[in-house]
Amino acid sequence: MRLLLVEDDHMIGESVLDILRAEHYAVDWVKDGLLADNLLRTEAYDLVLLDLGLPGMDGVDVLRAMRARKANTPVLITTARDAVDQRIAGLDAGADDYVLKPYDLGELLARVRALLRRATGRAEHRYEHMGVVIAPNTREVTVDGQAVVLSSREWAVLEPLLARPGAVLSRAQLEEKIFGWEDGILSNAVEVYIHGLRKKLGASLIQNVRGVGYMVPKA
């Protein structure tokens, strides 16, 4: 999953970036509202963590611009603005959830997971398909009851495919799930991770759709 962190406080931003990457999310971090607005117009993200008091462009304006473009990316507002009317303004502008600083990082991760589950149309804490079970909360994977260890990038490829059986994701879409904008991307990276997943989880779980991309077939 690829997340955009919009936070101008360096200490908070570095802490959040570290914990998100430790949870195997691909994360881009920007500290300016205008840059965030530009990225959201050109890049695809699974979730945005958005501060409100930003230089260049206020976070509420960034959010309003997103929703005016009909972008439905989940947005978690993270801010020190604790007045009720400011929280209402953020939610009315289109935020999906709200957490006040200083926040517990564990709670922040739980809210991120909840919003990502909701975005995929799933309420449960695990996905099960063709004998493969994954638990996003713990990153545990089993095949027919046997634990399997995946690398962080193998996980990043598997989760969006298993969350939507029958949906085809292109190589470019999967690269967006794996890499942040500062990462170097090898031309065959997705193919390498798909190959590793097939060896660990079974050759039939992930199928090629010639000229389009990859999918997990519906049961």
Rank of each mutant, 00 (worst) to 15 (best):
106 G>I: 00
170 S>G: 07
29 W>M: 10
27 V>D: 11
172 A>G: 08
180 G>L: 13
79 T>N: 13
147 A>Y: 05
156 A>E: 04
33 G>V: 07
141 V>A: 03
176 E>G: 15
76 L>G: 13
199 K>I: 08
56 G>N: 13
165 P>L: 01
1 M>V: 01
156 A>G: 00
4 L>N: 09
38 N>F: 11
186 L>A: 07
45 Y>N: 15
116 L>Y: 04
125 H>S: 11
151 S>A: 10
115 L>G: 13
159 E>T: 01
189 A>P: 09
195 H>M: 03
119 A>W: 04
219 A>F: 03
99 V>P: 09
136 P>H: 00
211 G>K: 11
200 K>T: 07
208 N>Q: 09
79 T>Y: 08
167 A>V: 07
193 Y>V: 02
179 F>Y: 11
77 I>Y: 12
144 D>C: 06
126 R>H: 14
64 R>E: 15
203 A>V: 08
78 T>R: 01
194 I>E: 07
99 V>Y: 04
204 S>W: 02
14 E>S: 10
52 L>G: 09
163 A>V: 02
8 D>N: 04
32 D>R: 08
153 R>E: 15
159 E>P: 00
45 Y>R: 12
17 L>T: 02
128 E>G: 05
210 R>N: 07
187 S>W: 08
33 G>Q: 10
174 L>Y: 02
36 A>N: 10
118 R>V: 06
153 R>M: 12
177 K>S: 15
196 G>Y: 11
18 D>Y: 15
27 V>T: 11
102 P>S: 01
103 Y>G: 05
135 A>Y: 05
183 D>K: 08
187 S>D: 13
75 V>S: 09
22 A>V: 01
133 V>M: 06
173 Q>R: 04
41 R>V: 05
95 A>I: 06
35 L>G: 08
100 L>V: 05
188 N>M: 06
147 A>Q: 15
78 T>S: 12
98 Y>H: 10
170 S>E: 04
136 P>W: 02
27 V>R: 07
43 E>C: 05
83 A>L: 12
10 H>Y: 12
202 G>C: 07
215 M>S: 12
179 F>N: 14
84 V>L: 10
7 E>F: 00
2 R>P: 11
1 M>S: 11
36 A>C: 08
91 L>W: 12
59 G>H: 04
188 N>S: 07
170 S>W: 03
137 N>W: 03
181 W>E: 14
159 E>L: 02
25 Y>C: 10
149 V>I: 05
27 V>W: 03
111 R>P: 12
31 K>P: 07
197 L>R: 06
170 S>I: 00
209 V>E: 11
75 V>I: 05
76 L>A: 11
121 G>H: 02
182 E>W: 10
171 R>A: 00
184 G>M: 01
27 V>L: 06
41 R>F: 07
116 L>V: 00
8 D>H: 03
80 A>P: 07
200 K>C: 10
164 R>K: 04
31 K>A: 13
112 V>W: 02
100 L>N: 08
193 Y>Q: 15
191 E>W: 01
69 R>S: 13
196 G>T: 06
11 M>K: 09
165 P>E: 00
180 G>T: 06
136 P>M: 02
33 G>C: 09
43 E>V: 02
180 G>C: 13
172 A>F: 00
